[in-house]
Design a protein around this nucleic acid. Structure first.
Length: 521
DNA sequence: ATAGGGTTAG
């Protein structure tokens, strides 16, 4: 077709814009490529932003390099693309190059560069000074970006001043102020701002809900949620996550069910993944399976996060086969999905399969992180694989340059202790660069209990008493050791002390008996 | 034509 010859540049650009707005990138590219003589700088910039928004920053970069003339908008668009991709380094590189080429930054430039400059306080001051000099500081967009910058530097005085200097404040600037206060735990100021703002939309309400939740104020979050005039999926999802965070799993699941009762709202990937985490945390296999079924029925595409949540949910709920099935159905695996899978094997005592998973992960080119090694070391503990565990612990530091955390030391103490190498375990604890916590000493005490060692046990007890007097593990260990040695007198004495100080009972382990909750539609 | 506020896994 020769529609190319009929189109004017303005018409061409508006059609390209429509294609891009509807996500029809390929149609836009085709029009763009078919009409080389009708393009102006707007057409190029449109395509740049189309690529950048679709997430293909490489394509945008290629086009950018091809451009005969670049204006401020082209540079701004590239910087925005890099910012989306989380590539701050390239945001700055392009910023500098733009300035060097003689172009003057605009408000859009600053609004893009400022969020990418945190958490460097020096850079933020520079940009702020520049904004003042160029009379951009009263610009709504620039001001809002500055609020976010000062909020992440935990400087409420500065972001309040920036806010006051914005000439035209709108919903977005007010919301940024609220979020700033909430991030710093200044709930009162946030609430004040919320009351003062001239109008409120769903986003502002949701910011309040999230703020309350982050500040562990579930009651106010729920009150806010109930009061908001209209709710969208984000508000519902935030509330589910809030209950999950507060350990109120039944409430979280009930909310999820309620969404299905109001017809106007469809749960999205975020909602499903939040709900699956709830199922995983309360080990409710029935709920998890129902959510999985609803997810399949919803027709939502499975992304990495959703699939990983499913693997983790099945893993935590004890259905290893389903975890494997979901995992193997994924086209690509990443760090988190591998960690979920390896963690599942490790937790259920399939040490060998966990270690095989680790090998496969490396073959697929996925770099392990500290969580991977917690899983691997846990697998070694469950399998009694002392030599292997020590080797992984070494390679974690030497080969992968991962600094061991408390959990890793905990695994190692557990591993050595269970194997009866109490001396080694104690040596490891004494050599730790971190202050050993209850878990570490608990692992050693557990091992002393297992191997009836009063010698190592007593020094551990002393350490624990410095942290937490009367921890139940102490008595349990001492009782067992004296009991083993037939030291009945000491046993009686201990029991008497326990009565007197009424030692907290060890928390009961619970099996995952299903909650009566059944998700229905 | 570019820019600012709310949610994704262990």
């Amino acid at each position: 077709m020769s529609r190319a010859r009929i189109l004017s540049t303005a018409r061409l650009n508006s059609i390209i814009a429509v294609h891009l707005r509807h996500g029809h990138l390929i149609d836009a590219v085709e029009l763009f490529r078919d009409n080389p003589h009708h393009l102006d700088i707007k057409s190029w910039n449109l395509m740049l932003s189309g690529y950048a928004r679709s997430g293909c920053i490489e394509c945008a970069q290629k086009l950018f390099d091809e451009m005969p003339h670049k204006d401020v908008v082209s540079w701004n668009t590239m910087m925005a693309g890099f910012k989306r991709a989380g590539d701050s380094l390239n945001v700055f590189r392009h910023f500098l190059e733009m300035v060097r080429s003689g172009l003057r930054p605009t408000g859009s430039t600053l609004a893009t560069v400022i969020p990418a400059s945190v958490p460097s306080s020096a850079m933020l001051s520079q940009f702020h000074a520049f904004a003042i000099r160029m009379a951009f500081a009263s610009n709504t967009f620039v001001g809002t970006a500055l609020i976010g910058g000062y909020a992440s530097l935990k400087d409420p005085t500065s972001f309040r001043r920036v806010f006051d200097e914005i000439r035209v404040k709108n919903l977005v600037s007010w919301t940024a102020l609220i979020i700033g206060y909430m991030e710093l735990g200044s709930v009162v100021e946030a609430r004040q701002a919320f009351k003062t703002m001239p109008e409120r939309n769903v986003v502002a309400w949701t910011a309040m809900i999230n703020g309350y939740i982050d500040n562990d104020n579930l009651d106010d979050a729920k009150r806010c949620f109930d009061q908001m005039p209209e709710k969208n999926v984000l508000a519902w999802t935030s509330m589910i996550k809030g209950y999950e965070r507060g350990g109120q799993f039944a409430e979280a699941l009930n909310l999820f069910i309620e969404i299905h009762r109001c017809c106007s709202i469809k749960p999205n990937q975020f909602t499903y993944s939040a709900t699956l985490i709830v199922c995983a945390r309360c080990c409710s296999f029935v709920a998890g399976q129902s959510v999985h079924a609803l997810l399949l029925k919803s027709g939502l595409p499975f992304d990495m996060i959703l699939s990983s949540s499913l693997v983790d949910m099945y893993g935590k709920c004890g259905d290893i086969d389903s975890a494997v099935q979901v995992f193997e159905s994924m086209k690509v695996h990443n760090l988190v999905s591998w960690n979920s899978m390896i963690g599942c094997y490790a937790r259920h005592g399939f040490s060998q399969r966990a270690l095989e998973g680790f090998e496969r992960m490396k073959e697929e080119g996925v770099q392990p992180d500290h969580v991977t090694f917690i899983c691997i070391l846990t697998a070694c503990v469950h399998g009694g694989l002392v030599k292997e565990g020590e080797r992984y612990f070494q390679s974690m530091q030497r080969e992968f340059k991962i600094e061991p955390r408390m959990e890793h030391y905990g695994c190692m103490v557990d591993l050595l202790g269970r194997a009866g190498q109490l001396n080694e375990a104690e040596k490891l604890i004494k050599g730790m660069p971190l202050e050993p916590d209850m878990v570490i000493w608990g692992a050693l005490i557990g091992a002393c209990r297992l191997h009836s060692s009063l010698e190592y046990g007593l020094s551990a007890v002393q350490a624990v008493q410095r942290l937490d007097k009367d921890h139940p593990a102490i008595y349990s260990m001492m009782l067992r050791v004296h009991d083993d040695r037939g030291n009945w007198k000491r046993v009686d004495e201990l029991k008497e002390i326990m009565e007197k100080v009424s030692v907290r009972r060890k928390q009961q382990g619970t099996s995952w008996v299903e909650s009566p909750l059944i998700v229905q539609r």
